[in-house]
């Protein structure tokens, strides 16, 4: 049986993990490779690396990092952040990334989704969508949720599926950082209306929230950062809890 996936997300700046990371076991908690290996050993099903650096050398730094992760980690990983061309994707996949995640660049140029999925296959193209509710309607936001657009979340999600996205990473900006749970209603609507996997993101605070994202939100995978980085939730404990609730997980 296909299992629900638990995905820690690592924010990367200039090749290092940002956000405080609370791992005494690590010699260097800022080293993404060490952190990734630890997560892989502790039951993570996949990893996401989100590059937030804004320097001239960012492409090269990110490619170097992807190469080091691919050498050392034996589970799949996705790379995102500022990816805007076929060349970017080609470089990252050649360095060993399993999937790339695209966001603002495809809102500006939706045709890029078609080009990427035709060249590399849908299976490695994740479209990340950041959205929040404006007057009761879910609207897509850009630049990490800072810039609103008039695009409807559900219409955009259907469009990216048609254009060849293999997966959608949906972050609710209303929930992100609240530790109050995922946006389960919107998730369930996405998961029911679309026929590609949906990754839930934004709002994880405790294990019940993950159970809800899978049972109420019908998500295929759930992504979180700080609850894992600060060891508020251990992935294996989380999976035991999910299993008790009848959710299929890899243990």
């Amino acid at each position: 049986m296909l299992t629900k996936r638990i995905i820690p997300c690592l924010d990367i700046k200039n090749g290092r993990t940002v956000k405080g990371v609370n791992f005494v076991a690590l010699r260097d908690a800022g080293n993404p490779v060490e952190l990734a290996k630890l997560y892989a050993e502790n039951g993570a099903d996949e990893l996401v690396f989100l590059d937030i650096s804004a320097t001239e050398e960012r492409r090269k730094t990110l490619a170097d990092l992807v190469l080091r992760v691919a050498k050392n980690v034996n589970i799949p990983f996705t790379v995102g952040g500022g990816i805007s061309s076929i060349e970017d994707v080609d470089t990252l996949l050649k360095c060993g990334a399993d999937k790339v995640s695209v966001n603002s660049s495809v809102v500006k140029n939706p045709q890029l989704i078609n080009s990427l999925s035709a060249k590399f296959g849908s299976q490695c193209i994740v479209v990340a969508i950041d959205a929040k509710q404006v007057n009761g309607k879910w609207k897509v936001h850009l630049v990490g949720g800072k810039v609103p657009t008039d695009i409807d979340l559900f219409e955009w999600a259907k469009e990216v599926e048609l254009r060849g996205a293999g997966e959608i990473l949906f972050t609710s900006m209303d929930n992100d950082g609240t530790k109050d749970g995922f946006a389960n209603e919107a998730l369930a609507k996405l998961s029911t209306e679309l026929n590609i996997p949906i990754i839930a993101s934004g709002g994880a605070g405790n294990t019940q929230h993950f159970t809800d994202a899978f049972l109420k939100g019908k998500a295929d995978a759930a992504l979180a950062a700080s609850v894992f980085h600060f060891k508020e939730i251990e992935i294996n404990d989380l999976k035991e809890e999910l299993k008790k609730n009848g959710i299929p997980v890899r243990l």
């Binding site: 049986m1 629900k4 996936r5 299976q123 293999g166 996997p197 295929d220």
Partner: peptide, 13 residues
Amino acid sequence: SNQVKVPQIGWNQ
């Protein structure tokens, strides 16, 4: 078939 989500992505037995 589209009775299931396509692609299948993840860990299966």
